[in-house]
Structures are given as C-alpha cells and as structure tokens.
Design a binder for these strands. Structure first.
Length: 257
DNA sequence: ATGGCGTGGTAGCCACGA
C-alpha cells in the first residue's frame, strides 16, 4: 500500500499537478492539506475518473483537508469531536485492506505564526485536544495512520538552521513536546524511523530562493501505529513536483507499507 | 532571514502561511 501526504497550498491552483502526480506515482491513498476551497468545489468527479474515492472537509480561503483513496472510505469523521473549531483541519476514515482494517487520519495542524501570538496558543490547544481524541481513537482502531502537515520540525536535524530558528514557531520546545506526546501514544515517525540520519525536508520558504538553497524544514509527517512499523518498506519525500510551474511550497511525503 | 513570495478575498491593500 502506497500512502502519501501533500500540503498543496490551494487545490484550485494545484489540481492539474495533483492529477499528474497521481497518474505518475499511482498511490493507494493521498491525503491533502490546504485545499482552500468549499466542499461544493472539490473535484470528486475528476478523481473518480482516475479511479479514486474522495472525501473533503473544506472551507473558503483557508485550511481544508481531503482523503483520496482507491479503497472505500468508511466511518468518516470531520474535525475533532467536542472541540469547537471553525477551521477545517481534520478528516478521518476507515479502509479495509489486505493488512486489515486501517484508520486513516489526515490533519493540518495550525501554523502558530509566532510564539507570542494567540495563534500559537490556538496551535497548542488544538494539539492538546487532538492528542486526547487520538488516544481514544487508538483504542478503537488498533491499526492507525496519522498523516499531514504537523507544522512541527521534531528535531534539530529536521531544520536547516537550528540556531537561527531557535525558539521560533515550528521548532519551539512546547511544540516539540506536543509532537513527542503524540508519538508516545504508540506511533512511529515513519520517515525518521526508516531513515534515522537522513537530512531531508518537506517544506521550503517561497522567499529567499528557499528551495534552490535547500533552506527547508521537515514538518509533514506520516505517523504509523507501532503495530505496523515493521511492515513499512520505504519512506521518502518526492521533490519532483517542485519542478512544476507554480509549485506548492510543500513536497509529498510517502510510505509504502 | 524577519524582507524579499504565493494564494485568496476584496476592492487595491490586507490576512495568512511557515
């Protein structure tokens, strides 16, 4: 099973790139973040024509998450239950595979803007409620995969300039602690587990020729239940789409299980 | 590195991203 996560920074702009990438890579599951479109605009028909089911939890202008899948998507869930939130940042579904029933959770964690902002407090609060919900979800679903844009670089190796970014949003100790708490529920960061010392990034700033100079961060992750860790064959980041015209500032992160 | 870019909504700059 090939699963990928990709922050597309507007599906309105990037749909043709997503379609091209699907045709080239042939993933079984593709999780999108920042679709930036209302549900009525989501291109279910185009994806259906490629052989995929799709579900979308979207809104105008900001946020928006989707799951695109060759498998039927069952027991779907939008947002964190019991957590009041106008922002569309989570979508989940269950699939039946030859590995058994797997719960798929696609998230777009808040950015946080700056560590002294209300948005940072919202980010930490969102992560707290997400973790509480996830703990219970993992009891219900022994096989779970959480993937998406976490907006957290878990370790210094995941940041091109740890000194320059010290205590900044994306790397601050409280965010890293929140990430650690998620991992400690019994999950593996698949890329880091499979590639313990590889320096690789999933996001580069549009400014300052960030991609050309490789001034990146690894903030998009695929967390896999420890039950499934041994079954992961490969975890990679595909920089191919960065060569497209008008690329997203994120690259797809992939696993084969 | 603190800007510099990109997207979208709105009405021509502003919010927001990371």
């Amino acid at each position: 099973m090939k699963l990928a996560t990709w922050n597309v920074n507007s599906l309105n702009v990037r749909l043709s790139q997503v379609e091209d990438w699907i045709k080239k890579i042939n993933p079984d599951l593709l999780l999108l973040q920042e679709t930036k479109q209302e549900n009525v605009k989501f291109p279910h028909e185009s994806l259906d024509a490629l052989g995929y089911k799709s579900i979308h939890n979207g809104q105008k202008t900001y946020n928006g998450v989707a799951i695109i899948s060759k498998y039927e998507l069952l027991d779907t869930q939008n947002n964190i239950p019991g957590f009041e939130d106008e922002q569309k940042r989570l979508i989940a579904a269950t699939i039946n595979t030859n590995l058994g029933k797997i719960r798929i959770v696609c998230i777009y964690v808040p950015n946080g803007q700056t560590v002294d902002s209300d948005k940072y407090l919202y980010k930490l609060n969102w992560l707290k409620h997400f973790t509480l919900w996830l703990k219970n979800e993992m009891v219900i679903y022994p096989n779970i995969i959480i993937a998406g844009d976490f907006n957290i670089a878990p370790q210094d190796i995941d940041c091109h300039d740890p000194e320059g970014w010290k205590n900044n949003v994306l790397v601050s100790p409280k965010e890293r602690e929140a990430f650690r708490k998620i991992i400690d529920l019994g999950l593996s960061d698949s890329f880091r587990t499979l590639n313990p010392s590889e320096i690789n990034y999933s996001w580069w700033d549009y400014r300052m020729a960030g991609f050309r100079r490789n001034l990146g961060m690894r903030i998009d992750h695929i967390l896999v239940d420890k039950n499934l860790t041994d079954k992961i064959k490969i975890s990679t980041i595909d920089k191919g789409p960065r060569n497209s015209e008008r690329p997203s500032d994120h690259a797809p992160v992939m696993v084969e299980i």
